[in-house]
Design a protein around this nucleic acid. Structure first.
Lengths: 213, 213
DNA sequence: TGAAATCATGACGGGGCGTCATCCGCGCCT
DNA sequence: AGGCGCGGATGACGCCCCGTCATGATTTCA
């Protein structure tokens, strides 16, 4: 049995979980992410300190740096995580959509629902005037933008709609969605339907008026 | 002549400039602002350090803190300065405008011109992915937003346009202007006319489609 | 079981932060 | 003119955060 790959003996015979090294690694990474989310939520990004995050995990300072290089990097990981969870939702809307209107309505609705759901875990006690997750251009967030543009292109072509400046148009749509989404979260009660309706109508009305390059 | 207010003798008899104390005060404040602009331009906001700014002024560290409490506060002062310079331009557009379209076109054109002009003094060598002046809600910037909303209200009423959700609408318009403005600056050559046309048409088209509360 | 790989640990040097006791020179009075 | 008082410039200081690295503990694997 010398040429057979070796696996360590585990308490249970069928236990083929990864080894302990691997498990503590993911546990640590997760602990850091959780601590960071809590700290950013309580102190805000600017005020938060790598040490604050480290203290909350109970790990040694050196350990933190085995996983992330800086506060910025943890934050990006958190933002990336959000974008990664949103991406399949957006993809589903793109696949289902047959025309621009249905796609736009579905995507914005999905985004606002997502925002409202995430709201609780982020807006806790956050200092005013701060810039947050959406603002950074992490790889995963860039991917979401690209996907939106691609979906726009696909769906507009399907509609036989005249060409527009896709970069400007995508940027403008995302800007509207972000801003209306933010304002929506500040109102009580939070009215996802109303906000989505507003954003969709504004974009839908604007589209046919756009200059044709 | 005992009850006559005393003024120190100046080299020239008609020299009624403020005293040296006052002059060095404004000079220091200005020096800090200039140094900060340069440092933020070179290093970006995140990487910049209060010490970097101090070093560039040649002042002592304690002196800096006689004028501003933190890096954030200098930055806000810079942002406020921009907003303060833009405000009269916006005001002029508002006064001149007779309907929504003319106001919107004038205001966006003015904003984009302003952006392009400021571009040089800000974008120098700035690290990618950073959030900048527009993002912070300084008093003067908030005032600009309020002014935009007020102008919208005035001009829409003048048009006998049906009521809209002014907060959402203002926010959406500013978001579009910001985003298109940003994208405009990234293109070569910078095409203010094209960008302004795009933004204006998009908003103008969207307006009549909006839900009426 | 023992050697090697892996990784958590926390002390450390470096440096930025904001303060404060000190001192200087301008403004003001006689 | 001469001197005094005070606004404000100064920079050393103590504090804390930063990122690193030599060390040691634990896991992996033959």
């Amino acid at each position: 049995m010398s040429n057979i790959a070796y696996f360590p003996v585990r308490p249970s015979a069928e236990d083929n979980r990864p080894g302990k090294r691997e498990r503590t690694k993911v546990a640590n990474r997760q602990a850091i992410l959780d601590a960071a989310r809590a700290v950013f939520g309580e102190l805000g990004y600017e005020a938060a300190t790598v040490r604050d995050i480290i203290r909350r995990t109970g790990l040694a300072s050196g350990t933190f740096y085995n996983y992330y290089k800086s506060k910025e990097e943890v934050f990006d990981a958190l933002a990336d995580d959000g974008a990664r969870r949103f991406r399949p939702i957006l993809r589903a809307e793109s696949d289902r959509a047959v025309d621009f209107e249905s796609f736009l309505r579905g995507a914005i609705r999905a985004y606002f629902d997502f925002l409202a759901a995430e709201h609780e875990s982020w807006r806790i006690n956050r200092p005013a005037g701060e810039v947050f997750p959406h603002a950074r251009a992490t790889p995963e967030i860039v991917a979401v933008f690209d996907e939106v543009r691609a979906a726009f292109a696909k769906v507009l072509a399907h509609d036989h709609a005249p060409a527009v400046d896709l970069d400007y148009f995508t940027a403008a749509c995302i800007a509207v969605a972000r801003e209306i989404g933010d304002k929506m979260l500040e109102r009580r009660p939070v009215d996802v339907d109303g906000a989505a309706d507003f954003a969709v109508r504004m974009i839908l009305g604007g589209l046919p008026a756009l200059p044709r390059p």
